[in-house]
Design a protein around this nucleic acid. Sequence first.
DNA 1: GTCGTGCTTCAAGCGCGCGTGAAGTCAACC
DNA 2: GGTTGACTTCACGCGCGCTTGAAGCACGAC
Lengths: 130, 130
Amino acid sequence: MRYLGIGELSRTVGVRASALRYWEERGLLPGARREAGRRVWPAGAVRRVALIRMAQRAGFTLAEIAALLNDDTSPGATRQWRELAARKLPELDEHIAQTQALRRAVADCMACGCMNFDQCVLLTPSGEAP
Amino acid sequence: MRYLGIGELSRTVGVRASALRYWEERGLLPGARREAGRRVWPAGAVRRVALIRMAQRAGFTLAEIAALLNDDTSPGATRQWRELAARKLPELDEHIAQTQALRRAVADCMACGCMNFDQCVLLTPSGEAP
DNA sequence: GTCGTGCTTCAAGCGCGCGTGAAGTCAACC
DNA sequence: GGTTGACTTCACGCGCGCTTGAAGCACGAC
């Protein structure tokens, strides 16, 4: 099994070492063994970091991400996981819908050739998104 | 034409007055006339606030939103608008795709009955999202 | 030995997006 | 005239997500 030090992980995933340390401290990157006092993660941490970044961009706080990624397999933790996930799914749907609406608005406004986002497509009498 | 004070606008859109003042200061809510020293916005500000919130949730900074909403109709400003919008569209697409991937991952992980997001669906050998 | 490199911890600081509190202004009402 | 209430500006504070700096340790090369 491959292991990565903080420098190598940092270069691999494009996240500063200080951020990785911060994430570990906050419980997002557990499973770091210490070899001669230094953090060493299994190779799976790369995928985990990708997950964290994805969730961050989707508007999750670090605490929420930590809860979603929680390795604790006790019944209580599993229940909490399910509750959090169930609560988050509609939020994600809403988030996706709103971002799509915004994307459509920006694209339409560019296409229509106007120069004022505020008074353009979204003024459509259909009274859509906003 | 209807005009709204900061209190009425705040209640209508569900945004604190302090935030509205901050947004005006940062150029996101221009067009506020002063009547006896008080901010008064045309009714269109309600739609504008909705736009701002939408863009915020999509990960835009206030400065970017201000640029997108810019009322300046000079040729230079229009060109800048187009450039910013053109740059932002692929970012929005990427953002939507990633959020959808995360949503799928969370939903699948809930469905599969495991209790460890990290070692569940995303371990699929297809090597998808992350 | 000692130098550099790459890590360690700990404390402090920073940028963003506001929130909060103090002190003053203005219009309306009693 | 006095009070009330909604506003004003200004300065400071706060939570989040890091970043930076200082001081120290481990290890290999010279």
